[in-house]
Simulated assay, not measured.
Amino acid sequence: MADTGSRTLRLLSLMQSRRHWSGAELAARLGVSVRTLRRDVERLREIGYPVEAQPGVDGGYRLARGAVLPPLVLDDDEAVALTVGLQSAAQSAVAGMGEASLRALTKVVQVLPARLRRRADALRAVTTTAAWATGPTVDPGVLTTVAHACRDTERLTFGYTDSAGVHSDRLVEPVALVALGRRWYLVAYDTARGAWRSFRLDRLADPTTTGVRFAPRQLPAEDAEAFVRAGMGPRGRWYAVEVRIAAPAGPVRERIGAWATVEDDGEHACRIRMAADDLSWPALAIGVVGAECTVVSRPELRDLLGEWGRRFSRAAEDAAPTAGMPAAT
């Protein structure tokens, strides 16, 4: 890569994507010699990123905590606002928002100075976010700790309470975080049980990294999401729904963009797609839009809307006029 500035940015991006890199790996990814890599690392240090060098067979480079965010990118107040916002968004598991927010949060927290982390934690501690969806919540600190362990291929310990209320201590090799519906799952290899497992993060306590790295194993599924879905069984049935809405995509996206994927389907229509473990959520989203619609899939959603429609019609017919108010005509 001939452009030194571009190569430096590429080096920074690589170091933010993984906790530890060997010098040979980094040099190969950048297409430069190890000597040129050392100069590029020094350049990063000069602009405020504390890159640590570790000698020895297992040595290499890593981006240390406490780096100052470049002032032309974010000032202190913006950095705090971004961190708090990402922590809130990371707890939303709809339309891919949670996963994208968590990836961004992992990068920001890695280089956020301690004084700004304290400000962000204090603000988050006294802030309550109202949400449409109900269900178990996950502490952002748990999310980021587990995400770092997955990214750095570092063994992780935690306490876990299963669906039967039985508590156990686990030592695992974490591979991926999966957001499904309103829940987060960790996919990991349980070293004591010698088997792959998925863990709900709202049932996980005190995750702690061990500092011991591992070589990733082959996951017995197409990907982490498929592994989690397969382990849900009949009680964890998942619905992928598609509905055509007789309204432009723009207004529909403003109403339910965080719940579903909204795509144009002609000048005056659009299609929404979403996945849910409870069909009440897509039914509610359709009702919020307030426009004519056609259920493309699934039949179960069509049946549910029919049931709701009949129930609401009966409620409207049976409603008595409020005292002192004329009946509707």
Rank of each mutant, 00 (worst) to 15 (best):
V94K: 13
A95S: 15
A104N: 02
V109N: 07
M97Q: 15
T129S: 01
R117G: 08
R124I: 00
E99Y: 01
A104R: 08
G96E: 08
L112C: 12
R103L: 07
Q110L: 10
R117H: 04
T129V: 15
V108F: 04
R118N: 00
R118A: 15
L102K: 00
T106V: 12
S92V: 09
A90N: 09
R119K: 03
Q110M: 02
V109K: 09
A125E: 15
L105Y: 08
V108K: 05
L116N: 03
E99W: 08
V111Q: 07
L123G: 01
E99L: 15
T128G: 01
V94R: 12
G96S: 07
Q110V: 01
L102A: 08
A122Q: 13
R117C: 11
S101P: 08
D121W: 04
A125R: 14
T127G: 03
L123D: 04
R124L: 14
A95F: 08
A120M: 01
L105D: 04
T129G: 08
T127A: 08
V109W: 11
Q110W: 02
R118F: 01
M97F: 05
R119V: 11
A122H: 10
R118D: 11
T128N: 00
L102D: 13
V111C: 08
A95V: 05
A104F: 00
A104W: 00
P113F: 06
S101N: 09
Q110N: 01
Q91D: 09
R117S: 05
R117F: 02
T106H: 03
R119A: 01
S101Y: 00
T128W: 08
A122I: 09
V126F: 06
M97A: 12
A93N: 07
M97G: 01
L105I: 05
A93G: 11
A90M: 00
D121K: 04
L105V: 01
R118W: 10
G96Y: 00
T128L: 13
R103P: 07
R115T: 04
R103E: 13
T127E: 11
R118I: 14
R118S: 14
R119C: 00
L105Q: 05
L123R: 10
A95N: 15
A120W: 06
S92F: 09
A122K: 07
R115L: 00
A114T: 09
A100I: 05
R115S: 13
V94Y: 12
T129N: 05
S92K: 00
L123Y: 03
